[in-house]
């Protein structure tokens, strides 16, 4: 418990926030780096996933990639890329991209796939082009699931970006590893708490975006839900 108090004191110590290269800077680095990874993952994953969901071709590949990628240890990728590419941002960027891509892909694919085929058929029947079906019907309806994929990618990247400091000098992982090396455990714990808070804040932001997307995709859902639960009969077991 003492350590926890010391960690909070370390966090609150203005000295750790003041100078350049201090905590504020670290937080920005951490967010910018994670954001860049997620953006690139989205730029690749959303179009590919959407296309696969729309055409139904390549499903097996998606499923294999997402379950296979989960088993790949990020630390392993990070270190092997580090050996191959040298010290710098490239290796952690690539390793985190491998981490972020599968959930984004799976989200885009599953989202588009989950759109009722009858709805798509109806859109085609009234004369929408394939492009219009994709942008006007499938994407809006799939949005909540797509955002869900981005959410889990962002969360994992922010968490795992701490590991990046193991081979390069960036983000909130730095005070963490520095503390480990110099046995300044309050610094290590303080930085850990900061990352956890950051992840929680990002998670909550995404939750808001996701429920907004869900409301837009299914505006009447909320009301129906309430009506149902009210009328449901209780069985005495």
């Amino acid at each position: 418990m003492n350590l926890l108090i010391e960690a909070v004191q370390w966090l609150l110590d203005p000295a750790n926030w003041g100078e350049p290269n201090a905590l504020g800077m670290r937080i920005l680095e951490h967010l910018a780096f994670s954001g860049a990874v997620v953006l690139v993952a989205a730029a690749i994953g959303i179009p590919v996933g959407t296309l696969i969901g729309h055409t139904g071709r390549g499903r097996g590949a998606i499923i294999a990639i997402t379950s296979g990628a989960r088993a790949l240890p990020t630390l392993g990728l990070l270190t092997i890329f580090g050996l191959w590419l040298g010290i710098g941002l490239e290796a952690p960027f690539l390793a985190l991209l491998v981490l972020a891509l599968p959930p984004v892909l799976a989200g885009a694919y599953a989202g588009v796939e989950s759109v009722d085929r009858a709805t798509v058929g109806a859109a085609r029947a009234i004369g929408l082009t394939e492009r219009q079906i994709l942008t006007g019907v499938e994407l809006p309806l799939a949005a909540p699931v797509i955002v869900g994929g981005l959410r889990s990618a962002a969360l994992q990247v922010i968490s795992t970006a701490t590991l990046a400091a193991y081979i390069s000098d960036t983000g909130l992982g730095r005070p963490l590893f520095l503390g480990l090396k110099t046995q300044q455990y309050e610094m290590m714990l303080g930085a850990s708490i900061l990352v956890a808070l950051l992840a929680l804040i990002v998670e909550l932001c995404f939750q808001l975006v996701q429920s907004a997307a869900a409301r837009r995709a299914e505006p009447q859902n909320g009301r129906q839900h309430r009506a149902h639960s009210g009328a449901r009969e209780r069985i005495e077991a």
Partner: peptide, 12 residues
């Protein structure tokens, strides 16, 4: 709970 990164959790 899942949002808490693993490395920090190992320390917390």
């Amino acid at each position: 709970l899942y949002a808490i990164p693993s490395l920090p959790l190992f320390i917390i």
